[in-house]
Design a protein around this nucleic acid. Structure first.
Lengths: 345, 345
DNA sequence: GTTAGCACTCGAAAGGTAAGAGTGCTAAAC
DNA sequence: GTTTAGCACTCTTACCTTTCGAGTGCTAAC
């Protein structure tokens, strides 16, 4: 069967109405929405075609229709008219984000919470990570006789610090030694090369100085791990409780979101992020059972051209695609720009 | 009416059974639990006395009894036999916490998530804060030509850092100038004195150098704000969804927890934390409507003798007091010790 | 191809009944 | 005076039935 212009309009109207109300849509209720005059019977005929084509579903015989995963997909790809994000919203986003631009973690946290409020869904974000990052600079800031802060700057402009304690006193000499070791072995190398194993071999060659150096070097390797590994931030989970569709299994979904590995796997899957458009996974398109009643929309943000992290939302399938897709796109762009700005020079 | 030994035992049995099952406790059901032989009628008589005394409530005539706020309070103060926290649990806590001892934020996060798992409730914790902290040391670590990291160490051993960007290039001279200004005006002073207002007056006396200094000084003032202000961390909210008592209003409670001010107000209220015991607020004892079906148990942790933050849980009133109170106490002690250790010297 | 008409389906809401848990009271037993 | 058996009573829960209405699918006519 072919999609006709009228079928398109009807499907579109059903999806949009269902997104609004969350109730199955009946043939009569649609009539006011449609911009052409037909009877409910005609609409019914069209609807039953749409069911046959797989775009609609019927919870039970005497109820209205509900879009299927395929229906949403068709709507998103062919029918939806994407709203332009309003100037006011842009302003708001810019303002809020600028407030916490200082460190990536809090920027992503703010972005997530903003997105959660905007969408009435749960928002997820990942802090920037890059296993290909290269160590650009390392500093040791003595803070006490036995305490120092190790600071690492990577090629992507991300600065990470870690306080560390040593058994033996930190002297000018030992600091110098640390810089020597770091300069010779780590500066200019990818963070992935700063491993505990490597540090152990290094320690062997240090003799009795090893004891003083090891805690500092271990701290450095931990900084490297932090740079490689992304942190997953979750905001506004409680928003999900407002949806009928999660009445029964909100706990299951929330627990799922807490375990960050599956989400990370989704994000890192080779999703074809077509020309900068957010990725969308609707209902049954999700591989994880826990998400099959949900939709995820997410977008990678790039720091200086490198896809470094992800920003997105999770909600029921009847999410407001037309409004939220551009918001997420815009937000991830802004986040990327702000983080890129931070690494200037 | 007087409490008798038998009334005590009955009340105790009711509370403990209700904590376990969450169902109103009937007179017959109690008989097996009691270590003396009476008929259900006798128990009923005692129960109706306990209702008169305000320790029990009846959801409706033909249901069993449920402890009232006063009933729990009496149980907690007079009847409860506090379990000793097991060695295994101590070990587990120590192990998990040691893993993330590096920075206070992640330590508190781990502690909260541990507590949430342990209790099956939501856990809250606050990062250490002290408005009386004194600036001990400030460092400026240039990171790029226009980027530097400002580091502040306070008397309580807490290190905070912030990346900051300047319009004009950061030179050795400007760094020296920064150190001079800081040394003269801020070192040894309470963080509360580093205000934007103060910085503005300072800037006036700097003439054309002001432009270079202001971003750095503002960063410093922001660090001070961060030191004064605590951050509230929330873990395991989704655990609450498992309780019947939150079926209706889980959303309300979660939203309440998200707004951190009320919780901060509760924590900072002059709660008589008697000889190191955790504070307990049961049901109606809570001033906030949203918490009147809940119990909070929380304990302050001290860094080097100063109460610096709070660690606790929020759950239904039928929380396992006897097991959780010692856990929270122990955990807050350990957290305090670990954070104090960090500031040694 | 469209529409009016109508029988039909099914869920949600409302009412009615029965079962069961638990009570409160009374009067007798200890 | 305390304890207990006995019993009528209360109230919730579950289950069943009925009713109502929204919405359908089909047919025949336009």
């Amino acid at each position: 069967m072919e999609m006709t212009e009228r079928k398109n309009k009807i499907l579109s109207a059903i999806v949009e109405r269902y997104i609004q109300t969350g109730e199955p849509v009946g043939s009569k209720a649609l009539l006011d929405t449609l911009d052409f005059n037909v009877s409910s019977a005609t609409v019914r005929n069209e609807m039953s075609d749409l069911i046959e084509m797989g775009y609609l579903e019927q919870p039970h015989t005497s109820a209205g229709r509900v879009p299927s995963t395929e229906g949403y997909r068709y709507y998103v790809e062919k029918l939806m008219k994407v709203y332009d994000i309003s100037e006011a919203e842009k302003q708001l986003i810019g303002l809020k984000l600028r407030d916490s631009v200082a460190d990536p973690h809090s920027l992503l946290e703010t972005a997530g919470s903003l997105l959660a409020d905007l969408s009435n869904c749960a928002a997820v974000s990942t802090t920037p990570a890059d296993s290909e990052a290269v160590v650009k600079r390392v500093e040791l800031v003595p803070v006490g006789t036995h305490t120092a802060m190790v600071l690492m700057l990577t090629s992507f402009g991300i600065i990470k610090t870690r306080v560390c304690r040593t058994e033996s006193e930190i002297t000018l000499d030992s600091a110098q030694m640390f810089y020597n070791i770091v300069g010779k072995n780590f500066i200019g190398k990818p963070v992935s090369e700063i491993t505990v194993a490597k540090i152990q071999t290094l320690a062997l060659s240090l003799g009795d100085k090893a004891l003083a150096m090891i805690p500092l070097l271990v701290a450095l390797s931990e900084l490297s791990r932090m740079t490689e590994r992304t942190e997953l931030l979750l905001e506004g989970q409680s928003n999900l409780l407002n949806y009928r569709e999660y009445e029964r299994n909100a706990f299951e979904l929330m627990e799922f979101l807490r375990r960050s590995e599956p989400l990370n796997r989704i994000f890192s899957a080779k999703t074809e992020q077509k020309n900068g458009q957010p990725s969308i996974l609707i209902g049954k398109e999700n591989r994880f059972r826990e998400l099959q009643n949900s939709t995820m929309i997410f977008s990678k943000y790039s720091i200086a051209g490198h896809e470094s992290g992800t920003l997105g939302i999770i909600g029921p399938t009847r999410i407001d695609y037309a409004r939220l897709i551009p918001s997420i796109k815009y937000m991830s762009e802004v986040v990327g720009i702000m983080l890129s700005d931070n690494m200037e020079d």
